[in-house]
Design a protein around this nucleic acid. Structure first.
Lengths: 215, 215
DNA sequence: GCGCGGACTACACGTGCGTGTAGTAAGCTG
DNA sequence: CAGCTTACTACACGCACGTGTAGTCCGCGC
């Protein structure tokens, strides 16, 4: 239905089980036997369908990339302020796969996925820049990359954030609290424009002191 | 000198090697034999000093916590706007241990470390709130937890960010670019107060529609 | 019916690695 | 010197797990 035509097949069940196991225990600790058991198949079938443990991981990455692309397309259609929610939305939809994603990103895989998030963030930044009075110090792409990493820090450190908030970030209450928090963070600058300018001036001074030629 | 009195001992060398190996390959893939080889000792000595692989990991966590506490104390003394740099500073000082830290945070260990960062962020938020005209929607501690996770997302996703920026985040140029980017991000709100209020109103409406009693 | 390919299982192999054990050398105390 | 503790090594055990192999069942084309 909302998956591929291969959904109910053993192959799909194995992939889903792998996403769960690897997300829960990490790639190394996750065992083919454990994945097979969760999927309700023999361990040999895992190898039959995917060839090796690494290939199974690759298949998981590819599958998630497809799912997220679809999710992004849907989010792109929604241009209201619920854009702020896109991380929360993604988390809700991705559900149990969130831990897998976090690990994949941290491990350095899933690069195209991160880049796609940067692209989305870039669009958002461009819109924000359009209504901002003074020009930014660095280009939108750079800010998008950093901002995407920051946004992803929340689901990646989900357990720590949940502990700090006192509620599970995945629960409806946690999701709403996070959204309200993000509204504060994104609408209330931590630094005044004057303070930022002052800091920038300090950086410029340090740079010229070092003898760099651009100014 | 800047370490403990046990610095040059085999025990310290093993700990350092473990931080490197686990940071580089992850806890599971890191082997006691490999750590021992890097430390220039036999694998048995690792067990002799730390008892088990897990205990070695615990010792690494504890050691890093100590180092970071010292780093925080130093940062606390600096109340200028270079506060924005505290993540970058930490990364520079932590150097090769950064990957270990990221993994530890993602794995859920190093909870006290995260909580300490939340505490630091909370102080910073309180200072920003003092000069902000309108009151925040959520309390400072909640915002601090989320903001700390966001800030940590940058070093955790360091390779992706580096790719997006086109320079190594660890290089001096990368560090300066990051600082300038952070200045933009922290001084230029992504949402206007009006937009945030609109989104909040939407959330309130949804909440009362659900029949919650507080308003 | 026959053959054949794919899905699937049971089971054995090899190995890498954590862990346990025994033993050596050096320093300290009496 | 004996006796003990501590740092340290060499080596073997055992297990868990990825991988390889052989074989069964089922469906489809001829």
């Amino acid at each position: 239905m909302d998956r591929d035509e291969e959904d109910l097949t053993a192959r799909a069940r194995i992939r889903d089980a792998a996403l769960l196991h690897i997300g829960e225990h990490g790639f190394e600790r996750a065992t083919i036997r454990g994945i097979a058991e969760t999927a309700g198949v023999s361990s040999g079938l895992v190898r039959h369908h995917f060839g090796s443990k690494q290939a199974l991981r690759d298949a998981c990455d590819e599958y998630l990339h497809k799912v997220i692309s679809r999710l992004n397309d849907r989010a792109r259609a929604d241009t209201t302020f619920s854009d702020v929610n896109y991380v929360a939305d993604a988390r809700a939809t991705m559900g149990p796969y969130q831990r897998y994603l976090s690990r994949a990103l941290v491990d350095g895989t899933a690069a195209p996925l991160f880049d796609e998030m940067v692209r989305m963030t870039e669009e958002w930044i461009a819109a924000a820049d359009a209504v901002h009075p003074d020009p930014p110090g660095v280009d939108a792409h750079t800010r998008a990359a950093v901002l995407a990493a920051m946004a992803l820090g929340i689901p990646i450190l989900y357990q720590h954030v949940s502990r700090g908030l006192g509620v599970d970030l995945f629960s409806p209450e946690g999701g709403e609290l996070l959204t309200r928090t993000m509204l504060d963070i994104y609408s209330r600058p931590m630094l005044s424009a004057a303070d930022a300018a002052k800091a920038r001036a300090g950086l410029d001074r340090a740079r010229t002191d070092r003898g760099d030629l651009d100014d």
